[in-house]
């Protein structure tokens, strides 16, 4: 099955929520997007499996996690952010600024139009 092929090694990420058939499951679309980006970066050799697993584990074992594990993909995104900053692909400051910019862009976008970063009035 396609999904299996595409996710092969990332689907072995520590603690990954999976369905009865072993496929990853996502509570919200952004979680699937974060997963997919990580799959692509790993496929491209931007980081190794062990680098990923180690970074993700560190985030998963941070104190203060939700007991029900519902913040799994928040840890995932934190791990991905940290890895790309450690690899000097970007900086934490750039990511923070872009995050705020996307939020302003969303607020400024009228219904029925695609949300684009250019829609941020402060850009």
């Amino acid at each position: 099955m396609n999904a299996h092929e595409q996710s092969h090694s990332l689907a072995r990420s520590p603690g990954l929520p999976v369905s009865g058939e072993g496929d990853p499951v996502f509570a919200e679309p952004w979680q699937a997007e974060a997963f997919a980006m990580t799959v692509r970066l790993h496929e491209k050799g931007v980081f190794s499996w062990s680098e990923w697993a180690e970074t993700l584990s560190q985030e998963l074992y941070r104190p203060g996690r939700r007991p029900d594990g519902a913040d799994y993909y928040e840890c995932w995104v934190a791990a991905l952010s940290r890895l790309v900053t450690e690899l000097s692909i970007t900086s934490e400051g750039t990511l923070d600024r872009l995050t705020q910019s996307w939020q302003r862009a969303a607020e400024a976008t009228p219904h029925g139009h695609p949300i684009l970063l250019e829609n941020d009035p402060q850009r």
Binding site: W30, A34, V77, L95, L98, Q103, A106, E107, L117
Partner: peptide
């Protein structure tokens, strides 16, 4: 329209 913190963060990663 509104993006949650996580939605916006994922979009930021995607942009970069």
């Amino acid at each position: 329209n509104h993006f949650s913190d996580m939605q916006a963060r994922v979009k930021a990663l995607e942009s970069v």
